[in-house]
Simulated scan of single mutants.
Amino acid sequence: MKTLDKPWVLIAEREITTKLRDKTFIGSTVVMLLIVMAAVIIPALIAGKGGPDKIAVIDDAGVKVVQQASTTTGDGYEVTRVADRPAAEKAVTDGKVEAALLPDADGYVVLGKDRVDSGVEGALREAAAAVGMETNAGKAGLSPAELHAGTKVSLQLLKPGPLPDIVSDFVNIGLALVFYMTALGFGMMIAQSVVQEKESRVVEILAAAVPIRSLLWGKVLGNTVLALTQIVVIAGASLIGLLATDQADILEVVAPVAGWFVVFFVLGFVAPAGLWAVAGSLATRQEDLGSTTLPGQMILMIPFFFSVFAGSSAKTVASFVPIASSMSMPGRMLTEDVPVWQPLVAIALLLAATVLIVRMGARLYERTLLQTGRRLGYREALALEAK
C-alpha cells in the first residue's frame, strides 16, 4: 500500500474528528467547565455570605465613623474595639476583621491585609467626611478648608499581594486541576484509542500505509490541539464567570500568567502523551489498561497533590521539576513575585525532559504496537529488539 503524504497530519485529523463525535470527550469538557466555573464563582459567593464586615477601631471617634457608615450604606458594619494600632494590625493580619479604621494626622487610615473591598473603603471615606463635617460645623467662623479638616482617609496594606488569599488558593488549585484532569483525560483516551485499533486490527491496516512513528506523532498532535481547544473554551467560561461576579480586577493579575500557562501546559501535556500511547500499545484489550496506564497516572497524580498541598519551599522545588512544573510554576507566578529567570529555567528543563520522554516513547511504541496475543510489561518492552 502506498505511503500517504504527511501521514501524521492525516492521523491528527482523524483523531480530532473522532473525538469531536465522542460523547465521553464532550462530557469531560462539560465537567471541566462546571468545575472551573465553580472555582471562579464560589470565592465570590463565600465573600458575599460571611455576615457583616468587622471593622477594628481604637477610639470613640472611630466607633462613630463606623456606625455612620453602617447607617448610611445599610451594610451593617460591625465595630470591633481593640487597644491600639499593633492590636488592630494583628486583627487584620489574622483575618479577624475586614479592615481597621485608625486615627491619622489628616483624618483616618484604613488598614487592610492584601486588599480592602472597594465598598468598605468608600463607605468609610464618606462616613469620615460626614462625621468630620458635622463636628467642624459646630465650630463658628471656620473656613471651608477648616470645615473639612480631619476627614481625609488614606489606604495602607500590611501585606500587599497580587490576589486576595482565598482567590489565590482557588486559582492556584484551579490551574493545577485543569492541567491534571485534561492531561489525565486525554491520556486515557489516547491509550483507549490505541487498544481499540489493536483489538479491531485497524492498526495493522494503518501500519501498512503509515509509518508507525507517524501514527504516534499524529495522535499526540491531534490530542494536543483538542486539549488546547478545551483550555480555550474553559478560559472563556472563566472570563464570563469573573465578569458576572464583578471580579474583573482579577484578570489584570491572571492575564500575564496565561501565556506562561499555555507554554507549560503544551510541554507538560506532550511529555507524557507518548507514554500514554505506549500504555495502549502494551495492552491487548481494554481490561489491560488498568495496569499499563498506572505509571502515567502516577506521573500526573503525585505532582498534582504535591502542587496543591505541599508547603511553600516544596512548591518552589516542584516548580522546576519537569511535568510537576506545569502545575506548580503558574500558581507560584500568581501568588509570588517570581523572577523571570525561574520560569525560563523551568521551561528549559521541561523541554529537555519532553524531548527525552517522547523519543523513548516513540521507540517503545514502534516495538510494541504490533505485538498481539498478550499484555506486555514495560521492562519486557524495553528489552524488545527494534523492528
Score class of each variant (00 low, 15 high):
Ile173Gly: 03
Leu45His: 01
Ala314Asp: 04
Leu124His: 01
Ala310Asp: 06
Phe306Ile: 12
Gly119Cys: 04
Gly361Ala: 15
Val254Thr: 09
Thr18Val: 13
Gly373Leu: 03
Ala314Arg: 04
Val63Lys: 15
Met1Ser: 15
Ser326Arg: 05
Gly62Asp: 02
Thr151Leu: 02
Val153Trp: 04
Ser70Trp: 03
Thr3Ile: 15
Leu239Phe: 14
Gly132Trp: 00
Ser319Thr: 07
Lys139Ala: 13
Ser291Phe: 00
Val36Ile: 13
Ala83Trp: 04
Ala137Trp: 10
Phe305Thr: 04
Thr182Arg: 01
Lys23Ala: 15
Arg375Gln: 11
Pro103His: 10
Tyr378Ile: 10
Met32Gly: 12
Met188Pro: 07
Ser312Leu: 11
Val203Gln: 05
Ala129Arg: 13
Arg125Pro: 10
Glu121Val: 09
Lys159Gln: 15
Ser118Tyr: 11
Thr80Tyr: 10
Thr182Asn: 07
Val263Gly: 07
Ser154Val: 10
Pro164Gly: 12
Ile212Ala: 02
Asp288Gly: 07
Trp276Thr: 07
Glu197Pro: 05
Val131Arg: 06
Gly132Arg: 01
Leu206Gly: 08
Ala386Asn: 13
Arg81Lys: 14
Asn223Pro: 06
Ile16His: 06
Asp53Pro: 10
Gly174Pro: 03
Val57Gln: 05
Gly377Val: 03
Met333Ser: 02
Leu344Pro: 00
Gly74Tyr: 05
Asp169Asn: 15
Glu197Ser: 08
Val92Cys: 01
Val340Lys: 09
Leu294Ser: 12
Ala127His: 01
Met37Phe: 13
Ser291Val: 13
Ile302Glu: 03
Gln247Ile: 07
Val278Asp: 04
Asn172Thr: 14
Ala145Ile: 09
His148Met: 15
Lys315Phe: 07
Gly76Thr: 03
Ala191His: 00
Glu385Phe: 10
Gly51Met: 02
